[in-house]
């Protein structure tokens, strides 16, 4: 394999209930657009974005998973090799937040990654069902990062959500983000 045009390769897997906006987040992040009327994802989707952090080219491989139950066994097979898992819920949907512990149990079964909790759709703040405080408390109790965002009305800071998440050093026993296959393996 020849030298690729990046210094690091990180795998990021987005998970969460169906309809919380995972695909939109990934599209916003990788292509800078918000696709209206997005259909349900089938299986897993795959997007690439290369970002530069501290002068190093970091290739992000973003796996956008289907939220529907019947794709769960496909999604699960990606947990272990992920460098970061982003657990997504919809701030206007109580149910999607209440499912988070279930997602956590499932993740524990396959991987021991450091997690980020991401509340999406803050553009619909008037329909908010999950308060920031609740989400923050929950995340803290589980030792997870917590962020809120909107794929629809993304300003630059929010676009960089995934980026920031990657560049921040991860303390604790989770898989450190700066670890993993450099460009020159095999």
């Amino acid at each position: 394999m020849s030298m690729e045009d990046y210094d690091f390769l990180f795998k990021i897997v987005l998970i969460g209930n169906a309809g919380v906006g995972k695909t939109c987040l990934v599209r916003r992040f990788t292509q800078g657009l918000f696709p209206p009327g997005q259909g349900a994802t089938i299986g897993v989707d795959f997007m690439i974005k290369t970002v530069e952090i501290n002068g190093e080219k970091v290739k992000l491989q973003i796996w956008d998973t289907a939220g529907q139950e019947r794709f769960r066994s496909i999604t699960q097979s990606y947990y272990r090799s992920a460098n970061a898992l982003i657990l997504t819920y919809d701030i206007t949907c109580e149910e999607s937040f209440r499912c988070l512990p279930e997602w956590l149990r499932e993740i524990e079964q396959y991987a021991s990654n450091k997690l980020t909790v991401l509340g999406n759709k803050i553009d619909l703040a008037d329909k908010r069902e999950v308060s920031q405080q609740r989400a923050a408390e929950f995340s803290e109790a589980q030792d997870m990062y917590y962020l809120e965002t909107s794929a629809k009305e993304s300003d630059n800071a929010r676009q960089n959500t995934l980026e920031n998440n990657v560049s921040s050093p991860l303390p604790g026993e989770g898989k450190s983000i700066s670890y993993l296959t450099c460009c020159n393996f095999n």
């Binding site: 897993v44 794709f71 496909i74 699960q76 097979s77």
Partner: peptide
């Protein structure tokens, strides 16, 4: 099914 194949490669 490509997704099925990939999942089994992962496993």
């Amino acid at each position: 099914s490509i997704d099925c194949l990939c999942a089994m490669i992962n496993h």
